[in-house]
Amino acid sequence: MHIPEGLLPPLHAAAWTAAAAPFVVHGVRSLTREVRANPEAKLLIGAAGAFCFVLSALKIPSATGTSSHPVGVGLGSVLFRPPVMAVLGTVTLLFQALLLAHGGLSTLGANAFSLAVVGPWVAYGAFRLVRALTARLPEGTSLSLAVFTAAFSASLGTYTVTSLQLALAHPDPEGGVLGAFAKYATVFSVTQVPIAVIEGLVTVVAVRLLTSVNRGDLVRLGVLRPAPAPVPETAPREAADREAGTADTAAAGGDDKEKNA
């Protein structure tokens, strides 16, 4: 849920726009650099942006009796790092502000700062941290845990910043900024907790699907550690996996052929 149009005083709106702008400009540059260096990445970048598009359109009921939507920035931040996601998130916000009357142009800077700057960086930090902490666990488990934590904290982090932005603009006459922050956070962040869990799980599903169909790109992006050389004994098991509907690595298939030839 973004800050609605006109809800921040002009000075605040301008200040947040100025704060978010450098991140978005830097993001556009790293996006063009990434696409130029690796044109094949366009497909995955498009998927990450579309993922953000889908998730931020879905308003989900929460245990607080209110509803809100996920932010969907976790996937892109983990795959392409936060600067790229700053662009994709801002595009999503712009679409919603212009066509859906959700969020707004005057509050675009503030919403971009929370959703497209803080959210992605929180996601990336959480991802790196959990990956390092769980390095000894099996690769798939470690990756899933890290992706879940990344998406969960991005979702909560975004709305914590939103609450802070509103508290700074409209402090509580008695409790001041802190008192107002507690009130806004009750509305935004508490509503968001179950939705952040949903978002975490959905993002894990997305990464699992990508691992199945596009392992090479994930390894190249540094998201997935390169698998150890396939051991011949595991070949029948991988064949069984393929029958179960999961795609297989090209490497293992190639190995089979060489052995059989």
């Binding site: 690769e139 699907l209 691992t211 595991t234 991988e238």
Partner: peptide, 9 residues
């Protein structure tokens, strides 16, 4: 370990 990194459906 390598078998664990292939997601189960």
């Amino acid at each position: 370990m390598s078998d664990r990194s292939t997601p189960r459906a």
